[in-house]
């Protein structure tokens, strides 16, 4: 009975979605006159000198969203810790070491993965990627180590420091703009020439801070969840 109701509901939803989206032309230029897309593309190239306009939107035009997004991740990590919190000592992340081969491979790949993450967030304004992606890659690197070694520990203290300092950097960069008489999150550094590494003013700096923050947060989340064990192997 419930299935039937749900299916009818879904059919209605499907009808309307298809109806609406069949009228939105795929792959056509819908906007005439001045519009957000052309404005962003133009300003990103000419005013901000940021090569990747997605980055300039994420960090500058809509930087406030990104601040919120970072906060969402931060609060998710906090809420997750609060939900899973136990006073007892935690179990171990993995029960036994992986085989020698996986361990050596993890060893060898760990540094390049970290470097890849760093590369992605340092070049966030030049190539695809940025703080979130880079942070995720770094967290994945730590995940690799956690999977390979049963005694690999991540220090919560260090994570807290990195996380907080990176967040503070982001917020203070925003507030600095305000203090300097501009608006919140407005660029106050020289913008350089497009496609140089040192270009885009505060945008790369913010993205680097985001990268550190996301990396630390996701590592913390993974560590908390991995250590959450119901049973212990005898």
């Amino acid at each position: 009975m419930k299935k039937v109701i749900v299916l009818i509901l879904l059919a209605v939803v499907a009808y309307y979605l298809v109806d609406v989206f069949s009228q939105i032309k795929f792959g056509e230029n819908r906007f005439q006159g001045e519009n957000v897309r052309d404005f962003y593309l133009d300003k990103s190239k000419n005013d901000l000198h940021v090569s990747n306009s997605v980055t300039s939107i994420v960090v500058n035009f809509r930087g406030f969203d990104t601040l919120g997004e970072v906060t969402v991740l931060f609060l998710a990590a906090t809420a997750l810790g609060s939900v899973l919190y136990r006073r007892k000592a935690h179990g171990e992340a993995v029960l036994f070491n992986a085989s020698t081969i996986v361990r050596s491979g993890a060893h060898l790949l760990f540094a390049p993965i970290l470097l890849l993450g760093a590369y992605v967030f340092i070049h966030g304004h030049l190539s695809p990627g940025g703080g979130f992606q880079g942070g995720t890659i770094i967290a994945t690197g730590f995940l690799l180590m956690l999977l390979a070694y049963h005694d690999y520990k991540v220090s919560h203290g260090v994570l807290t420091w990195v996380e907080s300092l990176a967040g503070l950097t982001f917020a203070s960069l925003g507030l600095t703009g305000l203090i300097l008489g501009k608006t919140f999150l407005e660029n106050f550094l020289p913008i350089g020439t497009i496609n140089d590494l040192f270009s885009g003013g505060i945008i790369p700096i913010i993205y680097i801070a985001v990268g550190f923050k996301v990396g630390a947060e996701l590592t913390g989340v993974l560590y908390t969840m991995l250590n959450e064990k119901e049973y212990k192997k005898s």
Binding site: T136, L218, L222, E228
Partner: peptide, 21 residues
């Protein structure tokens, strides 16, 4: 490519590990 990178980074490894845990 930005979104593809994000989806690859989050969808492939992180979501899997969280669900598997």
């Amino acid at each position: 490519p930005d979104v593809a990178l994000t989806e690859a980074a989050i969808g492939v490894a992180l979501t899997t590990i969280v669900f598997v845990i």
